[in-house]
Computed example of a mutant assay.
Amino acid sequence: MIYAIGEALIDFVPEPGGLYSPQPGGAPLNVAAAAARLGGHSALITQLGRDAFGDQLVRAAQAAGVNTDHIRRTDTAKTGLAFVTLDEGGERSFAFYRDPSADMLYGPGDLDVQPQAGDLLHFCSVSLVPGPMREAHAEAIRRFRAAGAGVSFDLNIRLPLWPDPAECRAAVWDFLPHADLVKVSDDELPFVTRSGAVAELLVGQVQHVLYTKGPHGAEWHTRAGLLAEVPGFRVEAVDTTGAGDAFTGAVLAEMQRRGHRLSADLDAEAVQHLLWRAAAVGALTTLRRGALAALPDQTRLAHFLEEHL
Rank of each mutant, 00 (worst) to 15 (best):
L111V: 00
Q256K: 05
A293Q: 07
W276A: 13
R98V: 14
H122E: 07
V206W: 06
A149R: 08
M255N: 05
R98E: 04
S152D: 09
G65E: 03
H137L: 11
G131P: 01
G54S: 12
V235A: 13
M133S: 12
W276G: 04
N67K: 13
A146H: 05
I141H: 07
T46D: 05
A283H: 10
S263A: 15
D267R: 10
H308M: 06
L86Q: 05
H41S: 15
Q114H: 15
L301I: 12
G204N: 05
P160R: 07
L155D: 02
F175P: 01
G204S: 05
L226V: 08
R257Q: 12
V271W: 11
S195D: 04
T222V: 10
A149E: 03
G290F: 05
A264Q: 12
R277A: 13
G214F: 09
V184Q: 01
E88C: 03
L295H: 06
I2Y: 03
P215L: 12
L159Y: 07
V31R: 04
S185C: 13
I157V: 15
M255E: 04
F96C: 07
E188H: 11
G90Y: 07
D186F: 11
V58S: 02
I45V: 14
H70Y: 15
R261C: 06
G17V: 15
D119M: 12
L284T: 11
L120Y: 04
W276V: 01
D245F: 13
H308N: 09
A138P: 00
R194G: 08
A77N: 10
D69Q: 14
G131Q: 04
Y20V: 08
P231K: 10
L111W: 09
E269F: 06
G109R: 04
L155G: 01
L176Q: 13
E15F: 14
D110T: 02
R73P: 00
M133L: 15
V235Q: 06
K183A: 09
Y3I: 09
V206T: 04
G244P: 01
A270H: 09
T193A: 05
L111P: 02
E188I: 15
D110C: 11
M255R: 07
V113R: 12
D267F: 13
Q116M: 06
H216D: 13
A32F: 10
A136D: 12
H178I: 03
L189T: 00
V235G: 06
N30D: 04
M133W: 08
P14I: 13
R92Y: 11
D180C: 05
R92S: 13
E236Y: 02
L176I: 10
E135S: 13
G118N: 10
D267T: 01
